[in-house]
């Protein structure tokens, strides 16, 4: 009975059946442009599977965003302006390269502070036990 139920059960489709966007899985012809696009895609967050970049994700929205990035790069737009356009839509959350702001300054400052503390500790322990 269980086997029959499984055999008869129709899968619930929760993904579009439409084909992916033209440049979702196709590289740009110009290798330099493709490299620029790829570098940008790796720093943009997939908004569906939030731990991944759009370069890594197979979500249909990520595919559409890759296509958008490649189309705009092919038209000669620079990566910074594409990133700014997306930040305007989704906020800083969309980028893995967060701009320095009131909320993000600890991210930028913490490594420097930690390095300084480390250097201080190292200096003191070397001074204590000189060779």
């Amino acid at each position: 009975m269980a086997a029959l139920c499984i055999a008869l059960a129709a899968p619930v489709l929760a993904d579009p059946s439409t084909p992916p966007a033209a440049l979702a899985y196709t590289q740009l012809r110009d290798p330099a442009q493709e490299a620029t696009a790829k570098a940008l895609m790796e720093t943009l967050r997939c908004l569906v599977c939030q731990g991944q970049s759009i370069a890594d994700s197979d979500a249909s929205l990520a595919g559409d965003m890759r296509s958008l990035v490649r189309e705009r790069i092919a038209k000669g737009e620079n990566p910074a302006s594409i990133r700014a356009w997306l930040i305007q839509r989704y906020g800083d959350y969309v980028t893995y390269d967060p701009p320095l702001s009131a909320v993000t300054w600890p991210l930028w400052l913490a490594p420097i502070v930690l390095l300084a503390v480390g250097a201080l500790l190292a200096r003191q322990s070397f001074r204590r036990r000189p060779r």
């Binding site: 249909s60 559409d64 965003m65 958008l68 839509r89 989704y90």
Partner: peptide, 9 residues
Amino acid sequence: RSAVQVALG
């Protein structure tokens, strides 16, 4: 192509 969806955020 989800273009307007992305434009809306």
